[in-house]
Design a protein around this nucleic acid. Structure first.
Lengths: 243, 243
DNA sequence: GAGTGGTCTAGACCACGCT
DNA sequence: GCGTGGTCTAGACCACTCA
């Protein structure tokens, strides 16, 4: 097995291959995977490199590792639709459920910051904000209503139409030249209220509300998100490995 | 700095020390931490060991690392009360908010499995189950109602009173001799209904419902949990690092 | 006892940021 | 150019499980 691509790290390439083998059930559940040494031999890399890959898959709950025994694929994970780290990537969440994703922008416009906005975003009242309202569909059904506010001052590309059907990570990268480094998410239940019609639910129904703040590696606040999930369509079911 | 304790791994000891320094603000925000090489020198360990520790802290969002620049403490994390991996550890969640935790058992009794129970737990209808209902208090206010069902067949210790004020991880270890390896959590909003009085909310209020299934490293289902959070008292606010 | 994963070392080279 | 973190290697020894 030759690892030729230069664009990705060796570990990244091995990870990709193993992920594919697991998803294709090359390694079936209940059967032991090759040992670290065998993998190292197969790919022609050091055992340490193999270990970083297996550690990542293990942290996501994709494989189970037992000292003195071996490594096994975790078939229970099929009951989940994402690992914990994937909670804020809505497209990934929907795909993990086996649904087709589509993102439809409802409105993208420039607004001025209210006092509330200014406080949470650390800007001045009246500063310009980009308001982006979008709807995530799962197999054609509206599943998530997502609202984002981004300071216009961060906009790197002028006079350009923003493609609202992209994922937030890609939007921040392409139009703001910003990489998302970490996210703080506040989870709470909320009555659907004024969002009921757009998500096609009763106004007195309960929705899952995720309030997210995205930061750059420089600790700069990039955007805040206010998101409503219709759990009739999509229930987040997350795997988390204990160590 | 001598690392003498034999009971913990070297990396574990270094991790503990760095965590303490960060929480004591020995490393203040905005100032660069010592480099990997400097840490390696200080603790007398290899750079690889230091890296595993820093990688863990970075994954939790506690520090920010920039190639070519350095490592910094992330002060925004104080706005959060747990990293994503801590979502299912309720005591940790409450403590992270700066509240005093106390766990009060409401009832612990043996029941027989309904058809519903049997299906999700993979046992037979009529099999014995341990039902544990507990209330988590944050600064004396009821914050979380937790119900667990555990197959009695797993009980390792006979004829012993179970201390219901322990964390589920400790209960599984002490009375069932089982280690929790991974958890699948389903997040949804839910009307409080019959749980309203016990959590001291209106019955038509919305609560956050977390349905958890706990598994051992052998992929055996250990217990299921049905938990209701009163978000007036406690809002889960989770940090997640992107890579 | 043989083989597994878990820990740790001491090196090397690279990509990146600063100044 | 220098120092930082990022990647990778080739070893060593240990703890554990299983036959």
């Amino acid at each position: 097995m030759a690892l030729v691509t230069r664009s990705k790290s060796i570990a990244g390439q091995v990870e990709e291959i193993l992920r594919e083998r697991i998803s294709r059930a090359v390694y079936t559940s209940g059967v032991r995977l090759p040992s670290e040494s065998e993998f190292a031999g197969e790919f022609g890399v050091s055992r340490a490199t193999i270990r970083t890959v297996l550690a990542k898959l293990s942290a996501e709950g994709l494989i189970l590792r037992r000292q003195g025994d071996g490594t096994y694929v975790n078939d229970r994970i099929q009951e989940a639709n994402a690992h914990l780290g994937g909670l804020w990537d809505f497209a990934h969440l929907i795909e993990g459920n086996g649904f087709e994703v589509s993102i439809q922008p409802i409105l993208i416009e420039v607004v001025t910051a209210t006092e509330d906005n200014a406080r949470t975003l650390g800007i001045k009242v009246g500063d310009e904000l980009l308001l982006m309202e979008r709807l995530f569909f799962a197999n054609g059904e509206p599943a998530i209503l997502a609202r984002n506010l981004i300071p216009v001052s961060l906009l790197a590309v002028s006079d350009q139409e923003i493609d609202g059907s992209l994922r937030i990570r890609e939007i921040m990268k392409r139009y703001f030249h910003q990489e998302i480094a970490f996210v703080i998410t506040e989870i709470s239940p909320s009555f659907s209220g004024e969002n009921s019609s757009i998500l096609d639910v009763e106004s007195r129904d309960c929705l899952l509300n995720l309030k997210m703040t995205f930061y750059s590696i420089d600790n700069q606040l990039l955007t805040i998100g206010d998101n409503y999930l219709n759990d009739d369509v999509l229930k987040p079911r997350l795997v988390q490995a204990w160590n």
